[in-house]
Nucleic acid binder design. Structure first.
Lengths: 194, 194
DNA sequence: GACAAATTAGAGTAATTACTCTATAAATGA
DNA sequence: TCATTTATAGAGTAATTACTCTAATTTGTC
């Protein structure tokens, strides 16, 4: 489990960002935390923004692993698993979700990359829902725009459930994560075949 | 419409925070933008955090006006109006919503105040829903926990709809606001008496 | 008008910031 | 082996930061 210098820097940055927020953490802090000299840090990263961009790439890679996982067995079960793992990733990189819009406003490159993969992800989710409709798990939807609405709502929940808990001052526990999963199912409940 | 110095500072702060984000805006910037000397700014505010706290108080006051408004006429219409106005307030103070969790982590005083009024607001919303149930607008809910779920979901949408649009790179227009209102109604649709 | 209190201006400061530069040390490979 | 690339350390710098201090001005009150 030997980490190289670059990984060491990224890991320390995530730790500090999660704890103190990006604006309170300087490159000097990151260097100190990771036990790497300032000079060496700047050998690997041009600036703080580039570190954050690298963290985004780590997130993307983590996400890919979740979606690649084959959902053998119950299709609804597979969906729940994906949602659950998504919540865990959001927690791992929580600083990013807390400050998302602010970060993207500062760094346009970050914005473009994030929006690019976000678009992909929505498409994937759309396909998954269509799958559920085709296999008869979901029915009784009145119009195609209803699908869009449902999709948007479940997206909102999966992306902001942890933020809501945090801003409400609640602890993030496994039970809370489970509540989030169930919340998404609540939205679909009226349209689920028993 | 003559503004006093304190208001001038607060207004400039909101403008700059919305445009550049709190971390990029210094007290010096705010002083310059508002045409007030640094010394004078510090006469009114101990530091940047205190300015943000004052902005929160402005928000709270604005919110109170929305909820005080008597919902004469259709109760469902009144609800929609409140949601619509909420979105407009969220946009007015958008920096606050963008950076909420980060801001609260830095300033515990801000966190406590925000969570205090947030709790109140959830209670108000709960009463409103109960009102809708009692007056027969909403029905067919299976259990009391269903009410809670519905409430949480509509809360999530009303709080994060604009954030979602922003992080998705979409413009905030009146039509988008209306979509947000309709989205919340979608959640209740299966339970609405026609 | 005279006095006190409230308000304003802006020069000044210590700390921190991001980032550069140069000088070594370690790894590589011909 | 030894020369070249890669990696590391850390002192140094210019800019910016939040905030203080003092001195001047305005305001209100009698």
């Amino acid at each position: 489990m030997k980490k190289n210098t670059k990984e060491e820097i990224v890991d320390s940055a995530v730790l500090l960002f999660n704890t103190y927020g990006t604006s309170s953490v300087s490159t000097n802090h990151i260097a100190e935390e990771s036990g790497v000299s300032i000079g060496n840090l700047y050998y690997y990263f041009k600036n703080k923004e580039e570190i954050i961009r690298e963290i985004l790439e780590c997130m993307i890679s983590d996400w890919d692993h979740i979606w690649v996982a084959p959902s053998n067995g119950d299709i609804l079960d597979g969906l729940q698993t994906i949602i659950r793992q998504s919540f865990h990733l959001e927690w791992k990189y929580r600083f990013f979700y807390r400050e998302l819009i602010a970060l993207m406003r500062i760094d346009e490159q970050l914005q473009q990359r994030h929006q690019e993969i976000e678009k992909q992800r929505i498409e994937e989710q759309k396909k998954l829902i269509e799958n559920l409709i085709n296999s008869g798990v979901i029915r009784n939807l009145r119009s195609p725009s209803d699908i869009d609405s449902l999709l948007t709502i479940s997206w909102l929940i999966s992306n902001y459930w942890l933020s809501f808990l945090e801003s409400d001052g609640q602890e993030i526990t496994d039970e809370q994560v489970e509540r989030g999963v169930q919340l998404i199912l609540t939205v679909f409940k009226p349209y689920l075949a028993i």
